[in-house]
Nucleic acid binder design. Structure first.
Lengths: 162, 162
DNA sequence: GCCATCATGTAATTAGTTACATGATTAG
DNA sequence: CTAATCATGTAACTAATTACATGATGGC
């Protein structure tokens, strides 16, 4: 929405794609939040379309608040990732179970890499350099490191079983 | 607690260290949860110490439930990381603000690397190979990739300004 | 004796998820 | 005409955070 106006529905779709690796929100959270942001003057309705859809855009006030948040506030570094917890706990289960869990995680990471590559290709096909291209590239690099690690763990279990 | 018994207080400390990169929980969430797990037969009190502390251990039932969860359930892949959101949004702010934000993130990532290295060294100093050593290693590798990326972005801003 | 840290809890609030609900438009 | 998708909302519930609260022990 910061780069271009969007409807609540658009945002919900986007949380299932581009930004989903960092945050997720369902439509039932998005709509009330948009109303709240509008109330606070951070966003405004720029057009109303078919199916009673409203397209929101960030206001100058909203952009200033974003700038202030990015440069002047301390980031909350707490995270929550079930995937991370699972990888952490790989160490405490039996090798046979670990092998099963590792294969699931490897399959997921490979799908994830495909999805990221598809996003990268789609962004590259657009005219000009898309602002989010760099972040997608980071995702690909991190994915590669993680996939390597999972592969090593998997190999270690195999050696263990000999 | 899966590797060795611990008190609620221990767990709270641990969420501030080893596992904090994947999940976080405060003591006000931990104590009621321990009571709930005990009720469900997943953990049991193995000893009571000074200052009315209770040390919990995972039961066979709890271990079996963990095994089942790790191997038989579909992982929830939704994540939430404010750091991730900030990096994503780096693309939409002005170069001057981006420079400021990037420097904050670089500083944080470097601290994070130190913290991880210290954890790795501490685990290596223990007799035998600690089960969580591999996960810490993953953290270090991911951190390195992320720090590189932040550095590149920072360089790009500098070039932009010439 | 007193301060830091260990150790545990509960209450109030806010954030987030899941379920329920409805209507409009478009493609086949 | 009908099924899929677009589009928006609310209600009920669960998870998580913040604030409030208390007491024990050990080191100085």
């Amino acid at each position: 929405m910061t780069t271009q106006p969007a409807t609540g529905y658009d945002l919900a779709q986007r949380f299932g794609k581009s930004i989903s690796n960092a945050w997720h929100a369902g439509h039932s959270q998005i709509y009330p939040e948009l109303a709240r942001l509008q109330e606070a003057g951070m966003v405004e309705v720029v057009s109303e379309g078919a199916r009673r859809s409203r397209t929101y855009a960030v206001t100058d006030g909203g952009r200033e608040e974003l700038r202030r948040w990015m440069t002047e506030t301390e980031a909350a570094r707490t995270q929550r990732s079930e995937t991370g917890v699972r990888w952490f706990l790989l160490a405490v289960i039996e090798p046979e179970d670990r092998r099963i869990a590792l294969e699931q995680e490897l399959a997921f990471m490979r799908l994830e890499a495909e999805r990221l590559q598809a996003t990268a290709d789609a962004l590259d096909a657009l005219p000009g350099r898309h602002p989010f291209r760099a972040t997608v590239d980071l995702g690909l690099r991190v994915n590669a490191v993680m996939t390597d690690w999972l592969g090593e763990q998997h190999e270690a279990v195999a050696l263990d079983r000999r």
